[in-house]
Design a protein around this nucleic acid. Structure first.
Lengths: 125, 125
DNA sequence: GCTAAACCTGACGCTGGCGTCAGAGGCAAG
DNA sequence: CTTGCCTCTGACGCCAGCGTCAGGTTTAGC
C-alpha cells in the first residue's frame, strides 16, 4: 500500500488539509511542529501536502482522543509507514494498549455509577 | 442510607482523608475550593471531615477519570445525597452518559487500530 | 517544653492541544 | 492594480487538576 512513486501527485495547501480532516489550520501547523507531519514548501514558503495527509491527520485525531501524546505518536509513526517495529516500539504499543483498555474499564465503571443514579432518580420523580 | 444523626462521629483530618482515598492533601483542599467537599473547622482552623469523606473523594476521582469537571460534579452532588433530581440534573446526567459512551466507542476504535498494527508487526518480525 | 510532623493560606508553575491576535507576504480574479 | 482570501511566523492565552515552594501555626509524643 506504500506507493512511493507518486510522480505527478496533486499537492494541496494547508487549508484544504484542515477542512478535509475537520481540524483547524493551527492544528495542522502544530502537528508539523511536533514532528508528526512533514510538509514540502513552495518557493514562497507555503506548506504543500500530499492528499493522504488528510487521512493522516484524521488518524492523529483518533490517537489524540485515545489519550496518546504527540510525542508517542511520533515514536510510533514509522510502524505505520514501514510495518516494522523495534523492541521499544512494541513495548510502547503494548503499554498504550493497556492504558487505553484500563481507561475503557474506568469509563465503563463510571457509566455504571451514573446509570445507577439515573435509574433511581427516574423511579423517584 | 442518609444517616443525619451522626452524634458523636469521629472526625478525621485532611491527611487521613488523603491517605485513605489515595490522593494528595492538595487535591482534597482543591475539592473544597471547588465546592465539592465541605469541611468543618476545628477552633484552630484545621479541616475536620467525617469518615465517609474518603468514599466521597474516591467517587470524585472516578468521575474525574471519566471526564466530568468539578463544576459538573458539584451540580450533580445533590442527587447522591437526596436521591432526587430536577430536570436540569437529569439532562446533565444523560448528557454525561452520552459523552462517556461516545468516548468509550472512540477508545475502542483506537484500540482496534493499535491491535491491527500489533498483529501486523508481530507477524512481521 | 521541645521537636517533628501535620496543618494552614496564598500564589505561582506545569502539561497538552490547540485558540487567537499581530503584522506581513502570496495569489487568483476582475 | 486592487480587492479579498489564504498563508506565513512568532508569541501569548486558556483550561483543569493539581504540584510545589514559602512562610507561618498546631498538634502529638517524649
Amino acid at each position: 500500500m506504500t506507493v512511493t512513486q507518486a510522480a505527478a501527485e496533486r499537492l494541496i495547501r494547508i487549508g484544504e488539509v484542515a477542512r478535509g480532516a475537520g481540524v483547524s489550520v493551527r492544528a495542522v501547523r502544530y502537528y508539523e511542529q511536533q514532528g508528526l507531519l512533514i510538509a514540502e514548501r513552495s518557493p514562497s514558503g507555503q506548506r504543500l501536502y500530499r492528499q493522504d495527509a488528510v487521512t493522516l491527520v484524521r488518524f492523529f485525531q483518533q490517537m489524540f482522543t485515545a489519550g496518546l501524546t504527540s510525542r508517542t505518536i511520533a515514536q510510533l509513526l514509522p510502524c505505520w509507514d514501514s510495518g516494522h517495529t523495534d523492541a521499544e516500539q512494541r513495548a510502547l504499543l503494548r503499554a498504550e494498549r493497556e492504558r487505553i483498555q484500563a481507561k475503557v474499564d474506568d469509563l465503563q465503571a463510571a457509566l455504571d455509577r451514573l446509570d445507577e443514579v439515573i435509574a433511581i432518580t427516574d423511579t423517584h420523580p
